[in-house]
């Protein structure tokens, strides 16, 4: 048997789903194969437990381990880093827990916080930097302002207050009784300095989406005015100020001419 064939056979024996007694292997090799097979499953489940610690706490050992084992079958690890084994685990959980949306949303939050933790070190634009940049802005310059966000920043719509579940577990407090939101909201994850953060957005979520899709601050104001009326412009400015203060904004650039 060639090396290629041996490694393919060995890999299948170690990772294949279901039970196996390694009938097509030399009996001398079977106890060792069992060690590698058990270690594969145990190591990956342990890794998922570590990455999704709060999801694990939320659904309990038995449900979590069964979901993790299923994840290894539907999304077997492909990366050189063990940390990537958790990629797509929220999608696996969404299929396994269709009536409990907070499970997948909590897993998404944990995964994105982990990704933000190791994201590239983008220097964020701070309030002083933005003040210097915008001090001579004309109305046209403000309208043409484009904003890009730090690399590790991610957002999604959520149906539950999974952030409250995360916080309750992290601080060992009682989990709120009703975590289902009246309407879907936007959850944002990013890293401020060296620490991952998350925040549930309010009406400014539509404005964020406009900017993420390449829109200008003028477009964002328009979006916000449509939602909030005349106060939309003020709210857009306030939201941008908060994002800058919290280290979400990497760069801001106006294409229209500024006052000289």
């Amino acid at each position: 048997m060639t090396m290629v064939d041996l490694q393919r056979r060995f890999h299948a024996a170690v990772t294949s789903p279901g039970e196996t007694a390694f009938e097509d292997w030399d009996p001398v090799l079977r106890p060792g194969l069992a060690v590698y097979r058990n270690a594969y499953r145990a190591r990956l489940i342990e890794c998922l437990r570590s990455t999704f610690e709060k999801t694990w706490t939320w659904i309990g050992d038995e449900s979590f381990d069964a979901a993790a084992a299923h994840h290894l079958i539907v999304k077997p690890p492909q990366s050189w880093t063990l940390d990537d084994a958790g990629a797509g685990f929220d999608e696996t959980l969404a299929q396994l827990f269709p009536n409990d949306p907070e499970v997948a949303e909590l897993a998404w939050l944990e995964w994105q916080m982990q990704q933000a933790f190791i994201a590239a070190d983008d220097p964020a634009l701070d309030a002083a930097g933005f003040a210097a940049l915008s001090k001579d802005f004309t109305e046209e310059a403000w309208a043409s302002l484009r904003v890009s966000f730090v690399t590790g920043m991610r957002s999604r719509r959520v149906r539950t207050d999974c952030g409250a579940v995360w916080t309750a577990i992290a601080t060992d407090r009682e989990i709120p009784a009703d975590i289902l939101l009246a309407e879907a909201r936007t959850l944002v994850v990013w890293r401020q300095g060296l620490s991952p953060r998350f925040r549930m957005l309010g009406s400014e979520a539509a404005g964020l989406e406009t900017l993420q899709q390449g829109g200008t601050f003028g477009d964002m104001c328009e979006t916000m005015v449509k939602r909030l009326g005349a106060s939309g412009i003020e709210e857009a400015g306030r939201a941008l100020g908060v994002w800058i203060a919290q280290g979400l904004v990497r760069r801001a650039e106006a294409s229209a001419q500024q006052n000289r």
Binding site: H11, Y40, R43, L44, P76, P77, Q78, A85
Partner: peptide
């Protein structure tokens, strides 16, 4: 591992 799949274990060689 093989074919882009990784066991994240140190598997033995012949």
């Amino acid at each position: 591992g093989v074919a882009g799949h990784n066991t994240h274990d140190l598997l033995p060689l012949p």
